[in-house]
Nucleic acid binder design. Structure first.
Length: 569
RNA sequence: GCUCCCAUAGCGCAGUGGAUAGCGCGUCGGUCUUCUAAACCGUAGGUCGCAGGUUCGAAUCCUGCUGGGGGCACCA
């Protein structure tokens, strides 16, 4: 399938060169030519404003330039007319015959509709979710999960070979706390005298899931673990937690090819090698306080033991960061830098990392670390998704894994549907804060955009259920009307939306496009009937062919968003 | 205080420097004996937070300000 903006831009460029060669336009450098569908139908199907940009360099009035460009415009099978409008827009109209033929092209491409070659031969990695196995996935994590997986799908559709990766840490204080928490729940479930910490105890995980784990653990091991410390409990909880997380992700159609354990960076010695490299570069110093600290800070740090600091200020950070604590253990920063260095060494052409907005500072420090290692950080693209807040009964819910006050992704799916959750979390710019109004999502289920879009696919499927005895092979597409062509025009924009989403890593564009496409479809469905006594067999055949193409487009778009394309609702 | 994101219709949000700024919900009024009415048609609703600047042209780019949210631990 053609990417029409590009095709038109090529024509314009050829026309400008031709006009210059003929002496009808003066010499000037040709800028990047942008062509896109204008807002209003009377302004054509595609429009270029390049003549307006050229007025200055060419020292001519834009209308004249546009006229000359139009005059030299080469012919193309997809263009039927070129118009020039004041103050200097060049408007194209698609050739109706060509347009109608696209119905067959769409059906031929099928599930690979607008499969692009942007990333062919290239490897991309998308890292997302990356939650430590301390609790079920909550809503805050879910947004990054959906955005990450959707980006992966879009990259696949543009030809990339994509790996989805999940980075996690199963060591550290939080996991010890988790082990301890399960241990207490285990003893509690055995009826032993234990004191469960209060809700404000930050070392205890209060979630009910640990009660469940404790019961299962007793079923498996009885009371044989009574004398054990936190470790076997931590190991048990970790395995169980990952099972749950994977199952939850599967429910929303997400799976990761690689689970990368932070520990492996210690096992391989990578963490210390990175530290050594940073030290060699002169980016590390030992002190009880960062350089350039003010008097107040110095006073506070007077009694601290020395730690190792990364001089990230060299790269524009506002303060240096501790990489090795005074107790000799690295902070999260060091393995994080090692992890990203590892990613780069694995030779991906594109690295995408989905992070919550609260990790902004962290990713900056990691980036400075990569620079200090003299590695190319330009392949790393970080998508920061703004925080999600749950609104319930009109009030903001506090989310805290430790306190057990969690709105989990599972709850959300149970109360709505996997497709609805995906769409709601996807259909927003990542930069925009998202208030997930649970009451509205549940109550307005029938008006949720997800069903509006899926219903278009369902309606197509409904037609084919009723017409299994009619073949649409060899349909005469010239019988199709203007309404159907409005839809085909919109459908042909999918490739551009896809390319834009991939290049800019903005998957929400697909979500909005899907809704626009459905809103073009539904009115047509109402008026363009297949089974009606006043529709001739030939016309019915042509319309059937049209709906087959429409169904292909909706299925492709829904798949790109990781949603199902149901036959019935 | 430093920093990141946001501010567009009553509410929730799109908007890639171009032509008369859009969509959903909600308002009001219509449409099912015909392939799914989870739909369609019509209606009302705007100082694009404020003030400057750049440009032939600014919701979009720059500066400042105001308001809301996030981040600024030897936690991850």
């Amino acid at each position: 399938m053609k990417l029409l903006p590009k095709e038109h831009a090529n024509l314009v460029e050829q026309a400008i060169r031709a006009a210059q060669a003929a002496g009808d336009l003066p010499a000037f450098d040709i800028p990047e030519i942008e062509v896109r569908p204008p807002k209003r139908p009377e302004q054509g199907d595609y429009a270029a404003s390049v003549a307006l940009q050229l007025a200055k360099p060419a020292k001519l009035n834009p209308f004249h330039i546009a006229t000359q460009i139009a005059h030299h415009m080469p012919a193309a099978d997809f263009v039927s007319a070129v118009e020039v409008l004041h103050p200097g827009f060049i408007n194209f109209r698609l050739n109706p015959e060509w347009l109608k033929a696209q119905v067959d092209s769409i059906i031929t491409e099928g599930e690979n509709l607008f499969q692009l070659d942007l990333g062919v031969g290239k490897r991309a990695q998308v890292e997302f979710v990356s939650a430590n196995p301390t609790g079920p996935l909550h809503v805050g994590r879910s947004r990054g999960a959906i955005v990450g997986d959707s980006i992966a799908r879009i990259l696949e559709a543009t030809g990339y070979s994509v790996e989805r990766e999940y980075y996690f840490n199963n060591a550290g204080v939080q996991m010890t706390n988790l082990g301890n928490s399960l241990r207490l729940r285990y003893l509690e479930a055995l009826g032993m005298p234990v004191e469960i910490p209060g809700a404000d105890d930050k070392t205890f995980y209060h979630g009910d899931y640990l009660r469940d784990f404790a019961k299962q653990l007793i079923a498996e091991k009885r009371n044989t673990l009574v004398e054990e410390d936190w470790l076997p409990f931590k190991e048990y909880a970790e395995v169980k937690m990952f099972e749950i997380i994977r199952t939850t992700l599967k429910r929303v159609n997400i799976h990761h090819e690689v689970f990368f354990n932070e520990n492996s960076l210690y096992d391989s010695g990578a963490v210390w090698k990175i530290l050594e490299a940073l030290e060699k570069g002169g980016y590390v110093y030992e002190s009880n306080i960062r350089e350039n600290a003010d008097e107040e800070e110095r006073e506070k740090a007077k009694n601290y033991a020395p730690a190792k600091w990364f001089r990230s200020t060299t790269f524009g950070d506002k303060e240096d960061r501790v990489v090795v604590k005074s107790d000799g253990n690295p902070t999260y920063t060091l393995p994080d830098i090692a992890y990203h260095a590892n990613k780069i060494e694995r030779g991906f052409d594109l690295l995408v990392n989905i992070l919550g907005a609260d990790h902004f500072t962290q990713h900056q420090v990691v980036k400075y670390g990569i620079q200090a290692l003299n590695m190319d950080s330009s392949k790393i693209h970080v998508i920061l998704v703004q925080l999600v807040r749950m609104i319930k009964d009109g009030e903001v819910q506090k989310i805290s894994t430790r306190a057990g006050a969690i709105e989990t992704l599972d709850d959300l799916i149970d109360q709505t549907s996997a497709d609805a959750v995906r769409y709601i979390l996807l259909a927003r710019s990542p930069d925009s804060h998202l208030d997930f109004d649970l009451d509205a999502a549940v109550a307005q289920t029938n008006e949720n955009p997800v069903y509006y879009i899926q219903n278009a696919h369902v309606r197509c499927a409904g037609i084919f259920r009723q017409t299994s005895d009619i073949s649409d092979d060899g349909a005469d597409l010239s019988l199709l009307g203007d309404a159907e062509m409005t839809f085909i025009r919109k459908a042909l924009e999918l490739g551009d939306v896809l390319e834009f989403s991939a290049v800019n890593l903005e998957p929400h564009k697909i979500a909005f496009y899907a809704h626009e496409l459905a809103s073009v479809f539904h009115p047509i469905y109402d008026n363009v009937r297949v089974l009606s006594t006043d529709v001739s067999p030939d016309l019915a055949k042509a319309r059937l062919r049209f709906y087959r193409a429409a169904q292909v487009v909706f299925k492709r778009v829904l798949n790109l968003m990781g949603m199902t394309a149901p036959e019935v609702m």
